[in-house]
Design a protein around this nucleic acid. Sequence first.
DNA 1: TTGTAGGCGTTATCAA
DNA 2: TTGATAACGCCTACAA
Lengths: 336, 336
Amino acid sequence: MPPARKRSATIRDVAKAAAVSTATVSKFVNGSQRFSADVEARVTRAVQELGWSLNPMARGITTGQSGNIGIVILDIRNPHFTSMVKGAARSAGVAGLNLIVADAAESKAPELAVLRALARRVDGLIVSARLPQPVLQALFDTGTPVVFYGGPPPDPAYHSVCCDNYLAGRMLGRHLRDRGLRKISYIGFPTARWSAERWRGVQDAFEGEEARFQDYEAAAPVPEEGERLASVVLLSGDMPDAIVTFNDLLALGLLAEARALGVRVPEQVAVAGFDNITYGRLGSPSLTSVDMMSEAVGEMAMQRLAEVIAGAQTRHEDVLTCRLMVRESTTRQTPG
Amino acid sequence: MPPARKRSATIRDVAKAAAVSTATVSKFVNGSQRFSADVEARVTRAVQELGWSLNPMARGITTGQSGNIGIVILDIRNPHFTSMVKGAARSAGVAGLNLIVADAAESKAPELAVLRALARRVDGLIVSARLPQPVLQALFDTGTPVVFYGGPPPDPAYHSVCCDNYLAGRMLGRHLRDRGLRKISYIGFPTARWSAERWRGVQDAFEGEEARFQDYEAAAPVPEEGERLASVVLLSGDMPDAIVTFNDLLALGLLAEARALGVRVPEQVAVAGFDNITYGRLGSPSLTSVDMMSEAVGEMAMQRLAEVIAGAQTRHEDVLTCRLMVRESTTRQTPG
DNA sequence: TTGTAGGCGTTATCAA
DNA sequence: TTGATAACGCCTACAA
């Protein structure tokens, strides 16, 4: 049988064993004060022998800090978000913080009650800049430190970390234009504010050219929607030269279905997305995409949050540099 | 400016406002006792007006429960694990628990100190059954409730949730055998105990047949290793009829590199993996795989853990039913 | 049905 | 340099 959960030693036990006061133990283990070599040795020894480690909850009750950070992501199955989590986890580790991951995928927005409860048990929150207004308001009301990701902060009082969505679109648009493509379709995800920005960026890249634009709306930024919309986009009306999607997941779904429909990419139509997820690189054809620096965004967001919690006053809207990754889906098929 | 973090109301404030004792408030909000309609109304109203919610840490100090569960995953970028997390998150939500995700990817094994610290701040832990022995021992010493995933528990005293790895291999082997394939290579990941079991299952499926087996070792179960080993497996010696990999990520890497090498799948060689991740289905050729029920495993593990925490005495080794997903990579290419 | 009071493990203030 | 001791916010016997 697993050992019963030990009623572990308390700071008082340690203090007694080391023949010092609890205050001394506390200050010493927290490194907030030095003591005589003798005292320190005794305490260290007592801690060792009793196998004591401090109770984070008891500590939290007086310090008001839990040592936990919450990160609210919109879909844990989207590699873009898992990369963010990875980045955030790394900085968190450095700062000695734990990451509580809340997946909002099931409900369109995380439920208010759940979010409030989460806010109550963390020292800060990393959340998407595209949470709906009422959710944001509830969040602000809790007074919890917040850093937003994905786009500019919905309230100028808060930090944010993102890439420039317009610029990302523009880079991609420029690439398509240079490839001589002129009929451009876009599968957007209007729920995300920056879906429109990406699209605007793409379009603006064709300034001064005769180009034809058309856009479609995905109900969710997932492969299944890409698959669903494929026939609409490819087989109704005349075929575009290129299809840009709000994210790589939509693009991957689109690619899969295009293949099923017998439409050749990029020979008949080019395809490109955003996020630069791994599976875009590995697929056939490999997917042209704009790297939105998922991992770096997560890492930076956590860093900013740690700063805020530590009492930093300055506010940042970090904009990381994105990068166009040109691959087969907008250029040419490898032999085979 | 974000509002300063409010010094929120305490249970005493509520008690005073409702003209009752703190005990009454406590019992009422925890649902551990009913009171007269009048009292309940007054308390409810006071809670509302003061916007009070209890401090989880203060509560934890007396109850000994944090309301947090830790899940230690080996690579958050592997869709197999994110699906597990998703499943775990769902049951956690139902049970009102939070999920602290610890990614062990960077270090081979999670560092002992980190794990101990984590154990200290959660009510239970979901961890891989393939953690190295010293880590396990440290874990057991903490007395934290643990549920293992991926394989049978490393210690018979603990719960576990997994699929039958041998059976999964056998199902896949059977499929390959039925397809008339006889020269089978395996890219394993020896660090995982069940890599060998899967391989044994595959081999046993050929009982009574003249078959030729060969195996290779991946240093990590990631696409890059699949890419790296591709040329070794495909171009040294004579080409196998089929290559089975420890997981889908290896297979995806292998497929990508095979394509680069001009080796056609499945015409020249069949490829199959384990886990049935989404990106296997979407790729070209789509990937044959055994669905190891990632999400269900996570969900079940969390459920078991909740039971243990609630005081359940019976021990379970849940074995979920896996399922072979036959796709193009072992059958035939779609036109194009 | 409701209240009193002590205790949970730690930190922080202040005095020695 | 060290120690008493009062918080911290909540839970829970036990009492009324």
